[in-house]
């Protein structure tokens, strides 16, 4: 565990001594803030109308009308910015030759991978935690339910964990960071929309396409539903990504 933390610490330092973490976090926070603002503004306008219509007023729900769509939007922004967090992790070590230092140290490949993965998870966790600030205001001026919001954050974090593992995998394939980022983005987007094709398939394959796609799983957590299927899905996605990363690094040595 100590070895994992040594690597993670070095990666965290690298994130914050270069502009990457700041840029990614700022872009994410600005966009999230913008979506939050427009959703709250829209909810406000709806509330005004509902004030004249008691039946309609009962339908007003800040969790479903603000946080649900907000989490959906945040997940899309994550899809766009997370490849930028992972592209550097292994590609740069290879390009700079520092891979040779890591691989000739008495520390296993798994620990190196886990250290890098942990660092990227911590950056995402910090980034998500900062978006909680606007949510605090909805509690000051309204009465949203806490549990679905926490659930939404959990869903976002788990999805980000899966995204980061995919990004780490593509970073292990190349020494070019741009290539790693583009491949990650392409793969994530494909998995995001894979369920669109489920209509053209039938029976078993339709179910498979639905299961491997990100979208249906994430949809649940924005509605405040925490399903073990989704947990298993994210966990297996992350594990598979890390496993492939390990396989790529090991296999290159044997070529």
């Amino acid at each position: 565990m100590k070895a994992v933390w040594i690597i993670a610490k070095k990666e965290l330092r690298a994130y914050f001594t270069s502009p990457i973490a700041y840029v990614v976090m700022t872009v994410f926070l600005v966009l999230t803030g913008f979506f939050f603002y427009s959703l709250v503004w829209w909810f406000n306008a709806q509330s005004m109308q509902a004030a004249q219509n008691p039946y309609y007023a009962q339908q007003m729900n800040i969790n479903l009308m603000v946080f649900g769509p907000l989490f959906n939007n945040m997940s899309i922004i994550l899809l766009l910015v997370l490849p930028l967090l992972t592209m550097r992790l292994l590609a740069e070590e290879k390009k700079a030759g520092t891979e040779e230092l890591l691989m000739t140290s008495p520390i296993s490949v798994w620990r190196i991978i886990m250290g890098k993965y942990l660092a990227s998870l911590l950056v995402v966790a910090a980034m998500l935690a900062l978006t909680a600030l606007p949510a605090v205001f909805t509690f000051l001026y309204g009465n949203p339910e806490l549990a679905p919001i926490l659930n939404g954050y959990l869903g976002l974090f788990l999805m980000a964990a899966a995204f980061l593992a995919v990004g780490l995998f593509f970073s292990s394939l190349t020494e070019n960071q741009i290539v790693a980022a583009v491949l990650t983005f392409g793969a994530l987007l494909l998995f995001w929309v894979l369920n669109w094709a489920s209509g053209s398939a039938s029976g078993f394959w339709s179910a498979v396409l639905n299961y491997v796609s990100f979208f249906p799983h994430f949809g649940n957590s924005t509605q405040g539903i925490l399903d073990t299927t989704d947990l298993v899905y994210y966990a297996s996605f992350a594990f598979f990504g890390l496993f492939l990363t390990h396989a790529v690094i090991q296999s290159r040595r044997w070529r």
Binding site: K10, R13, A14, T17, A96, G97, T98, E99, E100, L101
Partner: peptide, 8 residues
């Protein structure tokens, strides 16, 4: 051959 350094 290439010193494995982290420039930052």
């Amino acid at each position: 051959e290439v010193p494995p350094l982290y420039p930052d």
